[in-house]
Amino acid sequence: MDKPTEMPTTDTKAERHKQRQQKLKAGVDAKIAAAQDEKGILLVLTGNGKGKSSSGFGTVARAVGHGKRAAVVQFIKGAWECGERNLLEGAGVTFHVMATGFTWETQDKQKDTAAAEEAWLAAEQLLQDESIDCVMLDELTYMLSYHYLDVDRVIKALQHRPPMQHVIITGRACHRAVIEIADTVSEVQSVKHAFDNGIKAQPGFDY
């Protein structure tokens, strides 16, 4: 007759949990010990889901909270009031806004290209300024997808920025050349979106 299987006691479960956590901690500690380089990070927030710009603005707010200088260049969405801009400008963050609105509203490639060029000139100046610790290029990906800006020119500016300057790029369908030089890439995917169910974008939550 087979001996009945003994159920783990509370003490046994606690010990197994402790062993798992110790193993996890050892792995984390090893990664921390190996990651000692310091440099400006190029962060890309892309994908079709909601929250890319919000995440980017959160990182800008974190920089400001640590006494860092930050600046934002907004492409495409500039015609909308922006709650993050209202808040962060008061905290000393510089904003450069393309201010043409969404490209499907203007339907004017020449106008949008000229506006993108003007906004990018401001971005290039920021990407050469060692006093700016963090630069957010909000919705830059569309400028490359629609060929309003030259990819090589953008890549060159990103690669030749001050070595300790962090850059955040947001927007859907990020160009592969930008992804290749990025240090961190997060892809935000959509599972459900209120807008698809007829709920309009609302101030204080969506923008």
Rank of each mutant, 00 (worst) to 15 (best):
V188W: 11
K192E: 11
P162E: 05
K3Y: 13
G90T: 09
M164W: 02
V72M: 05
G92L: 09
L43M: 12
Q125Y: 06
D206I: 01
W104M: 14
T103S: 15
E84Y: 04
V188S: 08
I168N: 00
D2T: 13
H166W: 07
V178H: 00
E118T: 15
H193I: 06
M98F: 06
F205K: 12
F95I: 06
P8M: 12
N86I: 11
D129V: 08
M1Q: 11
F102K: 05
L43Y: 10
E105M: 14
K25R: 13
K3N: 10
Q36W: 05
M1S: 14
M143T: 01
P163Y: 02
E117R: 15
Y146Q: 14
I41G: 00
Q125C: 07
L42K: 00
T103V: 15
A14C: 09
Q128R: 15
M7A: 15
D11F: 10
I168W: 00
Y148Q: 06
Q21R: 14
Y146H: 13
A61T: 09
E117S: 13
G58P: 06
E89V: 04
D150Y: 10
D183K: 07
A173G: 08
A71G: 09
A14S: 11
C134P: 02
K31R: 14
T113R: 13
A14Q: 11
A70D: 08
E187W: 04
V185I: 09
L127A: 02
N197W: 06
D108K: 05
D2I: 14
V154A: 04
F75Q: 02
Q22T: 06
E117A: 13
K192Q: 12
V64G: 06
G171R: 00
V64T: 08
I181K: 01
L88Y: 02
V154N: 00
A119I: 08
Y142V: 04
K13T: 07
R16Y: 06
C174N: 04
M7L: 14
K77V: 01
V185M: 03
A26C: 06
F102D: 01
F75G: 03
I181S: 01
G198S: 01
H96N: 04
P8H: 04
A33K: 13
T184H: 08
Y148P: 05
V97Q: 02
T10C: 05
R153S: 14
C82G: 08
A35E: 10
M136V: 04
L158C: 05
G204L: 03
A71P: 07
Y142T: 05
